[in-house]
Amino acid sequence: MGEPTEIQTTGAERADRTTHTGSDPGTDRTARAPGGATRVARSPGATVRSRLREQRRTPRRPHLLFELALIGLSYWLYSLVRNAVPEQAEIAQKHATWVWNLEHTLGIAVERSINHGVNSVSWLIVGMNYYYATLHFIITIGVLVWLYRSHPGRYAAARTVLFVTTGIALVGFYCFPLAPPRLMTGGGFLDTVTIHHTWGSLASGAGATVSNQYAAMPSMHIGWSMWCGLTIFFLARRTWVRLLGLAYPLATLSVIVSTANHFWLDAVGGEVCLAVGFLAARLIYRTWVYRLPRRPGEPADRELTVPAQWDTKVTA
């Protein structure tokens, strides 16, 4: 009974030697790891996927020059595409009338009353005009810099949210040209920048010649400000700073309505774009953006206060 076993063993050893010496024409699909364990060779595609998964788990520290170039190029492309969209004034006016009538149906068409009321307080409306023209960029850039310096492990994911949000907005500008209230024919709104001769806004005056005036839906003032507000709220340590983060998009909403640059529904459109941006980042990084490690190599932060359903793992 022992002889057949010996023959089988000898044959198995010969086959094993043949495979590893390369004399067998077949493809070698296994390799011996130290200790005798067998390791299956991975295809190039599997290797790339493995590296992407590892990068999601332990994000690398962003490179300053690369990020500056990326942000500069992205904003240049955003401005180029936004202003290259045909203005289509007639269609934009029809869309404005449709939005205004819809808001009347919903019982939320109060923008004109707010616009006229705030315009009567000169110092307030002038301040709002400057707010609209400047803080949109200043606060967003400031939050990006803060993320880069203090939360490098979360920077790339949070930046991805912002980029996806803005990309979707460009589609909205093209597919749904919309006249802002201040340019709406027969709407009775006041263009506060023109009335008070406010400096610095691309919405009216000389700046209007280099900016697409009918790119109002969705509102990126709301999309970007809410991104800033949520980022500050979830990542800042001081309570008063977190509260300021929540107040920022609310203040921005009051500004865009008071200055007649947007309808309420434009703000809703901006929020929808932002929600898709967060969803896209979650699918990429397999977790809620702000739960990524604060710094590369650190464990993920489990102390953040977020709704429980946001922490559900996304299956591959």
Rank of each mutant, 00 (worst) to 15 (best):
R237P: 01
T259G: 07
V272T: 08
C228L: 00
H221V: 12
T209F: 13
A267M: 13
F234K: 07
L283N: 11
V241F: 11
R238L: 10
P218G: 09
A260Y: 01
Y285S: 09
F263P: 04
P218C: 11
A280H: 15
S254M: 13
R238M: 08
A275E: 00
S254Q: 12
A281D: 05
W264C: 10
N212E: 04
S219E: 05
T231W: 07
G223R: 07
C228F: 06
R242H: 04
R282F: 09
R237W: 05
T231L: 02
P249K: 04
I284R: 13
Y285N: 07
F233R: 10
I222P: 04
S254N: 12
T259Y: 02
V272A: 13
G277F: 10
T231P: 00
I284A: 13
I284N: 07
L274S: 03
T231R: 02
F233L: 10
P218T: 09
A247Y: 04
V289D: 03
H221D: 12
V241D: 08
V257S: 13
G269R: 05
W240K: 05
G229Y: 08
G277W: 08
S258I: 09
G229R: 04
V257H: 14
A236N: 05
H221P: 10
G269P: 00
T287C: 14
L253P: 03
W288F: 15
W288K: 11
M220S: 12
W288N: 11
A251I: 06
L250H: 10
A275Q: 06
L253K: 01
W227V: 07
F234Q: 09
R282S: 14
A247T: 04
A260V: 05
W240S: 06
S225V: 02
I284Y: 11
A251Q: 09
W240R: 11
A215E: 02
S211H: 13
L274M: 07
